[in-house]
């Protein structure tokens, strides 16, 4: 097969840095958002799969029933 030596790293390295930064930022944001009062006891929160316990939020106790 014919080879096309297109430069990849040379013109595109800023995007690799940007991808790493975005990945890190979104991951941090997702963790922080999952730990807010609204989603800390959501059944989809991944900490339940690891055996996490329901956090007792003294303000609204009805979320405990889920």
């Amino acid at each position: 097969m014919k080879r096309f030596p297109t430069p990849i790293v040379k013109p595109l390295w800023p995007f690799f840095i940007a991808a790493a930064v975005t990945y890190y930022g979104v991951s941090k944001f997702a963790d922080a958002y999952g730990n807010t009062d609204e989603y800390i006891n959501d059944p989809r929160n991944p900490r339940f799969a690891k055996g996490g316990k329901i956090v007792d939020l003294t303000k609204n106790k009805e979320t405990m029933e889920e």
């Binding site: 800023p14 690799f16 991808a19 975005t22 979104v26």
Partner: peptide
């Protein structure tokens, strides 16, 4: 939304880095 806006943010940030460089 999370995926696509991350993608567009990545593109934008990469272009900004490139511009400053």
């Amino acid at each position: 939304f999370v995926f696509i806006i991350s993608l567009s943010f990545m593109v934008w940030l990469g272009m900004t880095i490139m511009g400053f460089y």
